[in-house]
Design a binder for these strands. Structure first.
Lengths: 374, 374
DNA sequence: ATGAAAGCGCTAACAA
DNA sequence: TTGTTAGCGCTTTCAT
């Protein structure tokens, strides 16, 4: 094992730790009953009070905990569900995870998070989770390939997909409505008097990238008077958004609005504009997508369209629980409606610095900003 | 199942999905061999080429995947490790997770993330993971209680703790050096001519909160000439930091420096100062802890002390792998040295807006800013 | 090289 | 109410 030269390492004697696993057989022997009685006593099945007492004391004394793999093998379920997501660095996925966790833990499941991004592909993750580690999984794939669809079709484990799938795939799915979302943003900018809009996308070979690009194209088509085009950032991150926006803002003529494909790109765009000495929204209006907490925290506040991450997570979890309960039920596709949240970054006039807490859409202080959509 | 009124729901017919799990027995029958031969063929044990071919084809045709729980029960290991963390919304934990994942996946383990924050306590998580779901775990507890120490002592699963433990606990541990970290920050601020410093802590009943508070107190004790005090934010978040800083900055006399207990509180403090019409660093210098990506992204850049999250994660993973391999080895405590990263938020004079990409400490553009520590 | 059989730790059906 | 026993799916001796 290599350790950094900068580190200090101390070594202590290991106390005698109980690295051995105590089994139910040992508990039964210790309590003077059969393993069946021990199992029943431990699981609240019918057993005499005397037996229960003896077994519980024996279990306590020996530090018994039931082995999860043996229990799972016998019972055919693990009481574990997985949320598999590519990019846990994006706050919107953390928000979804929190919503999912709330629902599944209320139903007695533990949620484990599988990060598909780093070393393994989503296909590997689906295959692996399909081996019985979990009773069901919620998948947020960044790219939907034929290989992934085939893995999804083959896995015996119930799956719910967050994101768009081809119509041919009849799986439970929860989707955002990118078309409406982009229309809300473009309509808003046009209302605010912007006429030269650039869409700063993430990678367009990802599902969200393709959908938001198409949504933007459809939205601007409804406004023949404005000028619009798209560029791509390398990633859905602040740094990539910064780099892409820097290029866009140094062109001539400079656009008067940037529609970023997500909040991170939008925040990078605000920083780029500020570093170029431009004012937001005076010189340039900037909007994001996802309405993450950061959008309310940055100055100026980032106008963003809320894709309902919390609701999508919650619904996905509910669909998964329903499918586990009834494996052959028809597949559902749920589309969650977006809503626009207008903040300072896209208004026609700048407001003076006001003392108000950074707000998120769930906070009352934000309600003034919010506009209903659809 | 309840669905939001705003949502659209479509229902399709379910294609006949293979919800049944195919076992190795079925593969063996299909291939015309015994289960033992099938197992050997599948696992690369000695078997004739003919047998291997037959078995592999049968497995392919039937879509066989070995059941994880049965395999785990038989082999006594799961090939899974867990990272249990309270607050996955904090980017520093994501950074650690990424480092951990890199190490463990190189050794053939899958990493699962257990979020201890939301519904269950860390004690529950330790107990649950100790049931055999995983071969080992890395724990980042926010609070170290006697109950947690007792659960840690009892679990048969190898554990590495990220954070400080009482000296009586002889477990593998990886720690940051809060004392040195806070000293680096305070020394830097004094050098820059600041003389009235407020420490905006997170909850001081957490381990990081207590350590950073003590570190700050020790650091200011070395500078009798400056005035210093501490206040507490409700949480290690941007919003809580904003609220706490707002209070501090409205007092008279106003301090000329804020030392925030982490970057999120520091960013909230910058926003609060800006919203009050103060300039950073002109009117007030602000520093953070953790050197997360956000510190390089915000304007002005947030001076921060890097606690070595990447290294701590990597070392923790290495310690865990070493312990799994050799369960009775002596316990190691590794302390990772901090380093100061100076950015615009704490300099004596403000620099004009410069066009440079948002930088993180790993990027070359940041090297100019960085000062070696220790 | 292959097959029969034991057994990982647990729960549940059946008998007593 | 309790104990005996089968068996979840897999790997691995042990014979052959």
């Amino acid at each position: 094992m290599e350790l950094s030269r900068a580190s200090t390492v101390n070594v202590y004697n290991t106390r005698g730790r109980a690295l051995v696993r105590v089994t139910i057989t040992q508990v039964a022997v210790h309590a003077g009953v059969s393993v069946a009685s021990a199992s029943r006593a431990l699981n609240g099945q019918i057993a005499s009070a005397k037996t229960v007492a003896k077994v519980q004391q024996a279990a306590e004394e020996l530090g018994y905990v039931a082995d999860a793999t043996a229990q799972s093998l016998k019972l055919g379920r693990t009481n574990q569900l997985a949320y598999a997501v590519a990019d846990i660095g994006n706050p919107v996925y953390v928000e979804m995870m929190t919503a999912i966790e709330r629902v599944v833990s209320a139903s007695g499941y533990r949620l484990v998070l599988s990060s598909t991004g780093t070393s393994s592909s989503s296909v590997d993750v689906v295959r692996d989770l399909g081996r019985g580690y979990v009773d069901g999984m919620i998948l947020s794939p960044l790219r939907v390939t034929d290989e992934l669809l085939s893995a999804l079709a083959k896995t015996p484990t119930p799956v719910v997909v967050l994101g768009r799938l081809p119509d041919s795939a009849t799986l439970d799915t929860v989707r955002a409505d990118s078309i409406t979302a982009m229309r809300l943003l473009v309509d808003h900018l046009v209302e605010e008097g912007r006429g030269d809009v650039v869409f700063v996308n993430g990678p367009s070979d990802t599902t969200p990238g393709a959908l938001r690009r198409d949504g933007f194209a459809a939205a601007v088509a409804a406004h023949p008077a404005i000028s619009a085009r798209s560029v791509g950032a390398d990633d859905f991150t602040i740094a990539a958004g910064y780099a892409a926006a820097l290029r866009v803002l140094q062109e001539h003529p400079r656009p008067d609005a940037i529609v970023a494909a997500n909040d991170l790109i939008g925040i990078g765009s605000i920083q780029a504009a500020t570093d170029l000495g431009l004012t937001v929204p005076g010189d340039i209006a900037i909007t994001g997508v996802d309405n993450t907490e950061l959008a309310g925290v940055i100055r100026p506040g980032l106008t963003s369209v809320d894709l309902g991450a919390e609701e999508r997570g919650r619904v996905a979890a509910e669909l998964l629980l329903a499918r586990i309960e009834e494996p052959n039920r028809p597949a559902h596709t749920v589309t969650v409606a977006p809503s626009l949240v207008v903040r300072g970054s896209s208004r026609a006039r700048t407001q003076g610095p006001a003392v108000s807490p950074p707000s998120h859409r769930t906070e009352a202080s934000d309600l003034n900003d919010e506009r209903a959509a659809r």
